[in-house]
């Protein structure tokens, strides 16, 4: 079993491997099995991810309005246009604000949840599932619930009902951008949706920390609680933390659903993807400009990922153990 897997992963041996076992032929070879089981995914990846990315790059050099098969080459014109478009550059700022908010809070919340659940002596599986469940909920469904029942602006909205008990007036959470309460709606929705998933990652990492370390620390006189957490737990979670932060940043860059569903006809609170959606698929149908923005965004994600990997040492986690 294991040989098959490692061979497959290490790099698919070409079909020549089969003559060694002539009776089974190609059908029995691990190479064949490798391609059989990976090809559905690979084909999907190529057709739905790599081809569109390539096409997008191609489109970004053309004047492509109302068409995805353009003929009018404009060089870097689209890039110049999108980089001077205040809506797009503004959306990058929006994203940055959003990321500054959501990445640390989700990180802290999911780590906190993991620590709590890890401490439980009974009903651990129950709480683990309960916190993980929101991950299964769609962003669109959650946005609608947040918009229509929790944070609607009328007196029977959940948030307004609770605040009403303390004599606070009804708040229009989404329609009125000042003060920007819409951030509260967006951040809470995303926290609820995401934290459980990252909690599971942290939980797995927590359970991987060797007991002996804690015992040794206790013998050396480390106090339980904060001191142990700071000097043992947190450093041991370094690799997982790095991965989680990386995933959170990418997820923040990809933010779309809740912004799109919660904020309608605004000129504010648009992350890059929403902005590009309106550029490429709005009334303008400007696929050239939209693609240029998408390429810039992709490059930015790559840069940030590499940069972050440098700082936090992504992938070095294994050696540090």
């Amino acid at each position: 079993m294991s040989t098959t897997t490692t061979r497959g992963l290490a790099g698919p041996a070409p079909a020549e491997a089969s003559p060694a076992r002539p009776r089974r032929g190609l059908r029995g070879s691990s190479t064949f099995n490798f391609w059989l089981f990976t090809s559905p995914f690979l084909i999907g990846l190529i057709v739905f991810v790599y081809v569109p990315i390539g096409w997008s790059v191609y489109l970004s050099f053309f004047e492509a309005r109302f068409t995805v098969t353009p003929s009018d080459f404009v060089g870097l014109g689209n890039y110049r246009e999108i980089l001077t478009d205040s809506n797009f550059t503004g959306s990058l700022v929006t994203f940055t604000v959003f990321a500054l908010f959501i990445v640390p809070t989700t990180w802290a919340l999911s780590l906190g949840l993991a620590l709590l659940v890890n401490r439980l002596r009974f009903m651990r599986a129950f709480f683990r599932s309960v916190f993980f469940l929101p991950t299964a909920c769609s962003y669109v469904a959650a946005s609608l619930i947040w918009k229509m029942s929790i944070f609607n602006g009328v007196r029977f909205g959940l948030a307004n009902t609770v605040l009403g008990l303390f004599g606070v007036d009804n708040t229009a959470w989404l329609a009125d951008p000042s003060p920007p309460w819409y951030w509260l709606v967006i951040v809470t929705a995303r926290l609820w949706l995401q934290s459980g998933f990252y909690m599971i990652l942290f939980l797995a990492a927590l359970q991987n920390i060797p007991r002996e370390l804690y015992e040794a620390a206790a013998i050396d006189g480390a106090r339980r609680g904060l001191q142990t957490f700071w000097y043992i737990t947190l450093p041991q979670l370094r690799a997982t933390s790095t991965a989680v932060i990386l995933l959170l940043i990418v997820a923040a860059y990809q933010a779309f659903d809740e912004f799109f569903n919660l904020l309608s006809k605004t000129t504010w609170g648009r992350p890059p993807l929403v902005e590009l959606y309106y550029t490429a698929l709005g009334q303008d149908q400007n696929y050239g400009k939209g693609s240029a923005g998408a390429v810039i965004l992709t490059l930015l994600i790559c840069l940030v990922t590499l940069f972050q990997g440098r700082i936090m040492g992504f992938g070095r986690g294994e050696d540090s153990k």
Partner: peptide
């Protein structure tokens, strides 16, 4: 057209809601 309609929606967003 739709592009003009959207432009006026932005007017309302910018100076009525904001």
């Amino acid at each position: 057209t739709q592009a003009m309609i959207t432009a006026t929606e932005n007017v309302f967003a910018d100076c009525v809601r904001k």
